[in-house]
Write a protein that binds this DNA or RNA. Sequence first.
DNA 1: CGCCTATTTGATCCTCATCAAAGAATGTGG
DNA 2: CCACATTCTTTGATGAGGATCAAATAGGCG
Lengths: 279, 279
Amino acid sequence: MANGSVRTIAMLRADPRLANSLADTRLASFPFLTPEERAAMRDCAATRRPVRIGMELVREGDPVDTVYFLEDGWACQYTTTRDGRRQISALLLPGDICNLDALLFRQLDVGVRMLTHGSVLAVPRERVATLAANYPGIMQCFTWLGLSENTILSRRTLCLGRLSARERLAHLLCELAVRLGHVASEGPVTFAMPLTQEHIADVLGLTPVHVNRSFRQLRTEGLLSSTRGTIGVCDIVALRRAGEFQPGYLHVQELRNGSTIDLRDANRRETLHMFEGPR
Amino acid sequence: MANGSVRTIAMLRADPRLANSLADTRLASFPFLTPEERAAMRDCAATRRPVRIGMELVREGDPVDTVYFLEDGWACQYTTTRDGRRQISALLLPGDICNLDALLFRQLDVGVRMLTHGSVLAVPRERVATLAANYPGIMQCFTWLGLSENTILSRRTLCLGRLSARERLAHLLCELAVRLGHVASEGPVTFAMPLTQEHIADVLGLTPVHVNRSFRQLRTEGLLSSTRGTIGVCDIVALRRAGEFQPGYLHVQELRNGSTIDLRDANRRETLHMFEGPR
DNA sequence: CGCCTATTTGATCCTCATCAAAGAATGTGG
DNA sequence: CCACATTCTTTGATGAGGATCAAATAGGCG
């Protein structure tokens, strides 16, 4: 079962008491970081905290002064209406930052909640801010991650506003497959999915009942084989087409092949220009 | 009519041929910018370009190497499906940055299109990158703006996923009122609205017909008085409640009273700590 | 084994989409 | 200044996708 496997991974890691390092998060995957910046990330003190399923890292509307880096397990950002309707605005996977907004905003309108057991690295805002202020490369990572969340949200907007239930589900599963690392694989893909259909409903803006029916539809069409806790994608090409999915917006490709833009490059080139004269 | 008034404002400004400055955009509103940073923004060369209604600043999926700062008029970010359904993911008002993503991404999945006549300041990515690399305060503005777009998108996600048509419309109008500067006014508010009902439908994930019906509903309930090109909010409190609107997520308040976080502050305090000894 | 939670399926209802067409505003050219 | 085309708004009639209500089944866990 999914929760079990997630917890297992957590247990294979270092002693939970041990303060652990930001270098294990997605932050480390940016190609333009200097050795000093990587060292600063390693040396940045962070309290590793095991968190149980259902735990609220940030309560909706509460003031925040801690940035949480998700080490293991899944989490989500969500909002609720006064009468209790809930919408999940972002799914957070291992390595993601749970509430980057806390770097610049004292108060968030969204809550953050664990969807599985797992563990987070908690870092006071002050400390993250210092890191960002002293190391431009790290600051750029934060900006990059923020803009990247943006493109994901824009795309989700299209899903919620214009796609049918079947299309939304197909899209979500494609997105998760890519974000979990099954990138451009053409063959069948299988991955653990700790979300319940109710969670999925809260992501897709549907009812759990209708999510279930959409699953069945995709299954009978031969695109999927879903069992509790596991998704098997039988026909990934068809699933992509069904979900209007184009992986470009996730920007994983750039990170992999190291073609991300480095702002300092621009600066270096400008300096060159000064010596060479204008244009 | 709305378009006309927008154009009028544009004409009151300086010579359209003249290269204009970034200090006229929302960038200038950040309290923590140093005089040098403000000067750098003023000195940053930008070509001012009048743009006509319907013009595409960025075509969906095309590579981009220019950042557009919206000076006058309204624009939007949008996405379309293969079969032509369209979703507007962001409305851009005067002062907004149209495609901040272009700072760090070479290719965008969203298009940017003018919804009225207006004018933009076009700045090559390189030049914005240099600015960001040399002036940490400006870099922080970009990050702030990115994260701010994020919270707006998260909220839109709630609207699209969980609110009824009437609620969505009420929410959008409240958001626009605040973003246009009619902040906490309790009395009746009137503002120009150049969007057609079709545009609104593309924002809210509805059909134009249903947007029209939602308008009529709000009008007969006595919350609104809408005519072509103008919105009159009669009962702002009721409209807020109808749209589940809480203005906090827009973070305009912090900007106004200057309570935005300055990352350099954290750094200064840390330095103090070093002299005072730990804790 | 029994409790609890998650998935599955059925029946009915309602919100919103679709199709169609008439009216108001705006802009254009003569 | 008026006739006409165009675009936007408004209203009606009908249909479909998804919500809601209800209950049965299956799976995980103590």
